[in-house]
Design a protein around this nucleic acid. Structure first.
Lengths: 196, 196
DNA sequence: GGTTGAATTGACTAATCGGTCAAGATCCGA
DNA sequence: TCGGATCTTGACCGATTAGTCAATTCAACC
């Protein structure tokens, strides 16, 4: 099993560190050390730390999209059950993180956005794309649920936005409480947002 | 009108800067300059930047509690209408911030928590107290709504947690979109969370 | 007036920050 | 086998970081 090329290692390491330490708390030196790359290589591929972050957000979302959202879309029963499986995936991600870091880390995208979105336009847009596409996928699931009669018809686009917001809020509450259970107890109320 | 004493000025400035720039992006020098205090004074009152942040969270919440939550509790009709007035206050806070900073800043507590809660236990607990007390106030409003028959009885503690999560999520989505309207469009779905 | 402790000042440090650069290594097509 | 492009290396830069500290000012009390 070959190791990833330098550029990919930097991107992968970036999202890891920004998640477990935060953007500003992660130094370029530290990042390079963990990716086993030298500073010069870093600035050969990326023009700045922010530049790397933008690429990392896109790459991390591409991975999450295929391994979580698309997976949920392509397996198991359609409709609202997909939402429950998504919540399950989110919870498992947190559980895995707790196993290694002994702290609830919350949302990687939410965390990065809270720290940087109001300071850097490009980074803000990168995360905006992530949430927008999450909404798109979820909207598709709600459409299924409408067709099957699980939920009444209505603005599924708005419903999806509400759901993504609730998920992000639930992850924040879990992080602040340092208890994963808090996430689940809030996330189950998603059902309420699928009406109206 | 006397200016505030040094310690209070540092605390007030801290929450302002942590909100508009972020915790790590705010230097102690910058903070002191804006509070018109000298470095030595800073470390006379606080043992570290984190120490100041903990005090700032508590002070900022004390102010928000009296000027927003208690105000909503003590004026206007009881029950669910209080929730709508709270959302209105949140939105006005964002509108004021946009007027001066030209960017949607989102939740001050949420932002600080996302950046630091997993790295510093004291700071995490400080924000935990904030959200816990927010839940307490909202739970009281839901109790009123149950008594008046607006909503069916149920776990108002859990409902309050869901609502706070949704509000924080809505503020994040607005920040990432850089559009206040996004906050309102999500926040109105709070009603759905008051059932169940 | 004298004493005491709290508050203030600004110069100082060691470490780290993001970022640069010139020189070499490696690869690939001609 | 050559040449040019891509990638790697590690030393280096000025700026900034959080935090220290001894000297000084100030206000309150005896």
């Amino acid at each position: 099993m070959d190791r990833l090329p330098t550029r990919d290692r930097l991107i992968e390491t970036a999202m890891e560190l920004f998640w477990e330490r935060s953007f500003h708390a992660t130094g370029v030196d530290e990042l390079c050390a963990r990716a086993d790359a030298r500073k010069g290589s870093f600035y050969h591929f990326f023009s700045s730390k922010t530049d790397l972050a933008v690429a990392a957000v896109a790459a991390s979302w591409a991975a999450a999209r295929t391994h979580v959202f698309d997976l949920v879309s392509q397996s198991g029963p359609p409709g609202l059950d997909r939402l429950r499986r998504l919540v399950q995936c989110f919870e498992e991600q947190q559980t895995r993180a707790v196993a290694t870091h002994h702290v609830v880390l919350g949302s990687p995208f939410g965390g990065l956005a809270q720290e940087t979105a109001h300071q850097d336009e490009r980074l803000r847009r990168a995360v905006q794309v992530v949430f927008h596409e999450q909404c798109g996928v979820i909207e598709g699931w709600l459409d299924e649920a409408v067709v099957s009669g699980e939920i009444p018809s209505g603005s599924n686009a708005q419903r999806a936005r509400n759901i993504v917001a609730l998920l992000e809020g639930a992850l924040l509450m879990a992080k602040v409480s340092d208890e994963i259970d808090v996430f689940r107890s809030i996330a189950v109320s998603i059902d309420r947002l699928t009406f109206g």
